[in-house]
């Protein structure tokens, strides 16, 4: 199932044609075999266990369908998106901006280096108190948790990319009339470090989906909340259904971004 979805989500790849040709076909077949084997083992294992320990794939499928049909799933998903999206957007742009600024300016780098080292290892979850105090138990608070996660990933990948920009290219740009930090950043630094920046964005997007559950721990509604509630009730089939929703959302957004990344980095 997962395989079908990923293909359908990737139309610009011409995936039907790619998949049908030679090694891609082989890869797709192996992937399908892997999925089938996984479901098979799961099924066999589930037959020996009660449903509250491990439900069968079929019962998970039924629950998934029921949740989707009742509209519960759509509600939970739209709630999660309401903090996932602003969290991802603010964390990503903030991380990229900070990465560029600190990698470009030795002064800013020196000033902020101690603060960066102190804040870097703090897990987003540890900031729940701040989320509640500053934003409240709402989408803004959850978005804050997600943004913190996205921020660091984007900060470090951008920082590395900007640090690696060739001094020679900057010299060439200056000799061609580019003046001032902002102009150099726009004309050379950002395009030259786009491979690292986009890799950071992509990694960060994935991290944001992982953080959806954490960001809903303190009571904000959404997929994570639904998973936590179902866990408390030992509804493992519901838990798995919503985990699947997270996975599918990740796949969808990641494939879309990968397409964009390929287009932007066509020069590589």
């Amino acid at each position: 199932m997962a395989l079908d979805v990923s293909e359908a989500l990737d139309p610009a790849d011409g995936s039907i044609f790619d998949v049908l040709s030679g090694s891609s076909l082989q890869r797709a077949l192996r992937g399908a075999a892997g999925v089938a084997a996984f479901i098979g083992i799961w099924w066999l294992a589930a037959l020996t266990q009660p449903t509250y320990i491990l439900p069968t794939p079929l019962s998970v499928g039924e629950t998934f369908y029921a949740e989707a049909a009742s509209g519960e799933m759509a509600v939970a998903l739209s709630q999660s998106i309401r903090h996932w999206l602003p969290g991802a957007v603010f964390g990503t742009t903030g991380g990229i901006a900070a990465g560029i600024a600190l990698a470009w300016s030795p002064l800013l780098d020196d000033i902020s280096a101690p603060a960066v080292r102190v804040l870097r290892p703090v897990p987003p979850l540890a900031l729940i108190g701040f989320a509640i105090a500053w934003f409240g138990i709402n989408h803004a608070g959850a978005a804050f948790i997600i943004a913190v996660g996205a921020f660091w990933i984007n900060f470090y990948s951008t920082y590395g990319g900007v640090e690696g920009v060739s001094e020679d290219l900057l010299d060439v740009a200056r000799s061609l009339g580019v003046q001032g930090n902002l102009e150099l950043i726009r004309a050379v630094v950002v395009p030259a470090s786009l491979p690292e920046i986009t890799t950071g964005i992509r990694t960060g997007i994935g991290r944001c989906w992982m953080l959806v559950v954490a960001s809903e721990l303190f009571g904000v509604p959404g997929i994570g909340r639904r998973i936590l509630r179902a866990s408390n009730n030992l509804q493992v089939d519901v838990v798995i259904s919503y985990i699947l929703v997270l996975s599918l959302m990740f796949l969808l957004v990641d494939s879309a971004f990968r397409m964009l990344q390929r287009r932007v980095l066509a020069w590589r």
């Binding site: 020679d168 000799s175 395009p191 020069w267």
Partner: peptide, 20 residues
């Protein structure tokens, strides 16, 4: 400082790889 009145050509080209 380098400026547009001085055209530079290097042995290693230093083209902008992201530009055609």
């Amino acid at each position: 400082s380098p400026g547009p009145d001085l055209g530079l050509v290097f042995q290693e080209y230093h083209l902008f790889p992201w530009r055609t």
